[in-house]
Simulated scan of single mutants.
Amino acid sequence: MGTIKSLNKWANAHTHFSIDIVRIALGLFLFIKGLHFMQNISTLNALFEPIQNIPGGMLLLHYIIPAHFIGGILLVFGLLTRWVIIAQLPILIGAVIINFTGEMNSSNLILAIAVLVVCLWFLVYGSGKHSADYYLKMQQ
């Protein structure tokens, strides 16, 4: 817990609106990706073809859409940011692995790696000073 407090103090001292804009853009991207997967479930099924024999594959399909959808909304507001990122990490790591085991699509691979790097940044950085987390913390 002390590590998280020290990271929050550092992040609040070094906060900028540009970092908040990146967090909001990441949240919107994940939300839109969740909507896209909801509307095109066949696309999501096609992505899972290389690993369809893994036990619990259908559970993974039902995990991805709500994690992107709800996680995107929470990231936009900066609420529970680290928890949302932890929920996104298995999906993003899986997206990178799927590009190597299935048909390689370089644009999807670059996008998955970029989102993974940004998520890792926010896992360390947190939600920042201009977020619901910070507002609620100050109300205590």
Rank of each mutant, 00 (worst) to 15 (best):
M1Y: 09
G2S: 15
T3G: 15
K5H: 11
L7E: 13
N8P: 06
K9G: 10
A11H: 05
N12V: 09
A13W: 09
H14T: 14
T15C: 15
H16W: 09
F17E: 11
A25I: 12
A25L: 14
L26M: 12
L26H: 03
L28H: 06
F29E: 06
F31A: 06
F31S: 06
I32K: 11
K33C: 13
G34F: 03
L35T: 13
L35N: 13
L35R: 06
M38H: 10
Q39C: 10
N40P: 04
N40V: 00
I41Y: 15
N45P: 04
A46S: 13
A46H: 12
A46W: 00
L47N: 08
L47I: 10
P50A: 06
I51W: 10
I51M: 13
Q52E: 11
Q52S: 12
Q52K: 15
P55H: 02
P55C: 00
G56Q: 02
G56A: 01
M58L: 15
L60F: 07
L61C: 02
H62N: 15
A67E: 04
A67K: 02
A67I: 09
G72T: 03
L74F: 05
V76T: 09
F77N: 00
G78V: 01
T81G: 09
T81R: 01
R82F: 08
R82S: 09
W83K: 08
I85W: 00
I85S: 07
I86D: 00
I86N: 08
A87D: 01
A87W: 00
A87V: 04
L89K: 03
I91F: 03
L92W: 03
L92K: 04
L92E: 04
G94V: 02
G94R: 07
A95E: 06
V96R: 05
I97T: 09
I98C: 05
I98V: 14
I98N: 10
F100R: 02
T101Y: 07
G102E: 09
G102F: 03
E103M: 15
M104A: 13
S106C: 00
S107C: 00
L109N: 00
L109A: 05
L111A: 10
L111V: 04
I113W: 05
A114N: 08
V118G: 02
V118Y: 06
V118E: 02
C119F: 05
L120I: 13
W121N: 05
F122M: 05
F122T: 07
V124H: 07
V124A: 11
G126Y: 01
S127T: 04
S127A: 15
G128R: 07
S131Q: 07
A132F: 14
A132C: 12
D133M: 07
D133Y: 04
Y134S: 13
Y134I: 00
L136Q: 08
L136N: 08
K137H: 13
M138L: 12
M138N: 14
Q140A: 09
Q140R: 12
Q140G: 13
